[in-house]
Each structure stands twice: as C-alpha cells, then as structure tokens.
Amino acid sequence: MNTILIVAAKEFRDGLRNRWVLAITLVFAFLAVGISYFGAAASGSVGFTSLATTIVSLASLAIFLIPLIALLLSYDTVVGEEEQGTLLLLLTYPLTPAQLLIGKFVGHAAILAVSTLVGFGGAGLLIGILSGEMANAELWHAFGFFILSAILLGWCFIAIAQLISVLVGEKSRAAGLALIAWFWFVLVFDLLLLGILVMGEGRSGGQWLSWLLLLNPTDVFRLANLAGFEAVREYTGLAAIATGPLFRPYALAAILVVWIAVPLSLAVWRFRRKVV
C-alpha cells in the first residue's frame, strides 16, 4: 500500500510540476464560466443563466473534453517509462508490476480529481452567486453529482489509457490508439446506435437500446447527469428513454466505477504477463 502511495505521490508532483493540474483546472473553470455566461446568447442575451442549464451544457461538453484530457494524461503511463528506459530499473526495485500500475493510476486520478473539483467547483460557486441560486439545495446536489460523475468519467478514461499503454510497444502507437478510443467512445458509438435505431424504425423498442448505452462510459455519464435529477430533467428530452432502477444517478455512477475497474484490472493483468 505504501509503495502505491510513493508512486502516486511522484506522479502527482510531476503533474503539478509540468502544469497539468493548473492547465486542466483553468480549462474547466473557463469552460464552466463561459458556458454559463454565453449560454443564453441563443435567446438573444448574455449574462449568467441558471446552474441547471449550465449543468446540461457543461455535461455535453465534458463528454468531449474529459475523455480527451484523461487519455492525454495517461496514454504513455507504461510505454513512456519503457521508451525513456526507466521501466527496467523500476521493476528491479521492491515493487510489483501491479503496485507500479495502480500507483500511477492513483496519481493520475488525483491530478484529474483535484483539477475537476477546483475548476468546476470554483466556477460553480461563482455562477451560483451571480445567478442568485445559492439557496437551492437540490441544484447544488445536482452540481455536486455532476462533479463527482465527471471525475469518475475521467478515471474511466485514465484506466482505458493505461490499458492502451501496456498493449503497445511504442509511444506513437499508444497516442494513435488513444485517439481511436476517443473517436469510438465519443463519436462513433452514438452514431452507430442512432443508425440502428433509425434503420429499425423504432420497431425494436427502446429498452434494449438504453441497455446498450451502458457499454459506453460517456453515455453512462450523460444519462446520469441529464436524466437523473428532477431539476435538470425538465431541460432535456432524454428522460423518457432510460427508466428503471439501474438508471438512477448513483446506480449509473456505480456503473462508471465498473468502467474504471475493468480496464484497470485488464491493464494490470496484461502488464504482469508482459514483464514476468
């Protein structure tokens, strides 16, 4: 356990040093404030709109941005050390491959969690104050859940990036694969589902489709935020698709946790086989 924390602390300090933490925090903060301020531009005015609309727009944007940032942060976890020539030496130290990989995951996860919390959280406070919604507890619950699920979404993609980093032997290939993973989860997957839906002309019914959505962490995140809270629900038309006990926010958050655990376990398994 201690070994994992030593590795994690080093990764986190690296993140502070090369300004990853700062950069991600600023991007998230500007994004949130910007969306809130210009969100109402379509209806002819600018100014801070309510937190509820902000969450809806922010969630849609986060789906593009968070996976990209997480993949960028972690795609070279193992292959980077390998190319740098430090992996061989590290493995001769008293730490197991699993401890090394999990330590790096914890470090990267902390970088993303701190940035998300400070970036979105700070912006949320500002918007709340400026739009006069400080007293609305349900909204804060929804916004808190948005931050939590955003962190979980980021961790999913860190785990996926780590899996990529142990599958390939070169950094450039890892970068390519990471890009493909991003395309698949963020763009292609939904297009395919839409295509199936249109070709079936709605005959096949909506229920199995909503189950298919669970196969993509970005869709799980979307469902959890857009369809989850009464305060947000009224702004979206999505709520009707996914209903049932599994489609409550915290159940969906638990599914995101599965989406972290599975790629990470695969990465550990693959890494151990690779080196031992």
């Binding site: 430090t86 061989l88 493995l91 008293p94 491959p97």
Partner: peptide, 24 residues
C-alpha cells in the same frame, strides 16, 4: 521473481547498461 517480497529484493542493487532517469 518480480513478485517476491520486499525483503528479498531490497537487498539487491542493480545498475543497468545505459541507465536512464526522469529527465525533468
């Protein structure tokens, strides 16, 4: 083996050929 306990592995020191470190 890489899975051996700390006590065994910390008693071994290794200098690899063309050793590399964290540049930053």
């Amino acid at each position: 083996s890489l899975e051996l306990g700390r006590e065994h592995r910390r008693r071994i020191g290794f200098l690899p050929e063309n050793v590399r470190f964290y540049e930053q």
